[in-house]
């Protein structure tokens, strides 16, 4: 087999894995958009906040330590214990649910029936607020996150491909785990929204707030639920990205990469977020591999956005997005 083709295969595989990580972030956007018609600008920051909270809890950091020390002149920084990963994840989840409740109670509740653009602006405000709170709570140092997920090269794939192609593929174990978790997450979310009463209510709210209210669906409850689920997805994304590249403030920027994913997959489709993520992941890796050298490299930075632009021109609802149904 020609060497180039083998390389391309490895690049494709790696692209798929990277795509899964994009898709994880995009999923959170889709959930909130589906349920409330809000484009939640704060989704990336929520992933950052979740990851920082998780690290903070695991390391036994005292939240708001700087603030406490500044006010009371003390020198507390750590509780002096460390919490096992699984327990810390559960605690972080509880924090995310609390956050969802607070968002609903203090922001969204007051904006029922407002224009989507106003809700969108509110989430921008939320993003900045949350970033500030994360900084104040846990400090701004770059931290490593290790909840016990396998990392490093997968030897089995390396050896198997070496035997077949005479060339070992480098696939990170973490990417494989991320793929499995994303698959589980999507199956669970689709099952939830299609086959349960609350899922149906969620989709109803997305279609028509007023009508949902009129049949007795509580918008407050549904929105807290949706923001909690989005918080959970943000936590998963935060764990994956945090493990891969460390917990730092640039993590919130991965939200930007989720935008082209959404434009490709459609804002309203959970499977669309996954497929969109995979196309972007594979697309940008293969493009870099094939044309990168000719174009001077670093095409990964812009490829996704250009692809999204092309989609916006020819298929604005994305691959899987719901067509806007309009009766005349």
């Amino acid at each position: 087999m020609p060497e180039q083709l083998v390389f391309a295969m490895e690049v494709t595989l790696n692209g798929l894995m990277a795509g899964v990580l994009y898709a994880l972030v995009a999923l959170g956007f889709v959930l909130i958009y589906k349920a409330s018609g809000i484009f939640n600008y704060a989704q990336g920051v929520m992933a950052l906040f979740a990851a920082m909270t998780l690290v903070g809890i695991m390391n036994g950091q005292v939240p708001f330590a700087h603030l406490i020390n500044a006010i009371f002149g003390t020198h507390v920084h750590e509780f002096g214990w460390s919490v096992p990963g699984f327990v810390a994840i559960l605690l972080t989840l509880a924090v995310m649910v609390l956050l969802a409740w607070a968002v609903q109670r203090f922001v969204m509740r007051h904006l029922v029936g407002q224009e989507p653009i106003i809700l969108f602006m509110a989430t921008i405000g939320l993003a900045f607020f949350l970033e500030g709170v994360a900084d104040l709570m846990w400090g701004s140092e770059i931290k490593t996150l290790d909840v016990g997920l396998p990392q490093g090269i997968n030897l089995w794939i390396d050896e198997t491909t070496f035997q077949i192609f005479d060339y070992g593929f480098f696939i990170d174990n973490l990417d494989i785990v991320a793929t499995l978790i994303a698959a589980l997450l999507v199956i669970a979310l689709v099952a939830f929204s299609q086959y349960t009463k609350q899922g149906r209510a969620m989709r109803a709210v997305a279609d028509d707030h007023q009508a949902a209210l009129s049949v007795g669906i509580s918008l407050n409850f549904i929105w807290v639920m949706v923001w909690s689920v989005a918080g959970f997805v943000a936590l998963v994304a935060g764990i994956m990205w945090g493990t891969k590249s460390g917990v730092q403030f640039s993590l919130s920027l991965i939200a930007l990469k989720a935008l082209p994913v959404l434009m490709l997959g459609g804002f309203t489709s959970i499977p669309g977020a996954i497929v969109g993520g995979l196309i972007i992941g594979v697309g940008e890796k293969l493009f870099e591999f094939a044309l990168g050298p000719a174009l001077g490299g670093a095409t990964e930075n812009w490829f996704a956005y250009v692809l999204a632009l092309i989609f916006l021109v020819f298929r604005p609802q994305g691959l899987f997005g719901e067509k806007i149904i309009e009766r005349v």
Partner: peptide, 25 residues
């Protein structure tokens, strides 16, 4: 319960799903 002016169906839900949302409470 109110049936609103202009129908206000949940457009992306099927007819049966629409009916079932009525039983939410």
């Amino acid at each position: 319960i109110q049936v609103m002016e202009g129908r206000h169906c949940f457009e992306h839900l099927t007819v049966e799903e629409n009916l079932l949302t009525g039983a939410y409470t």
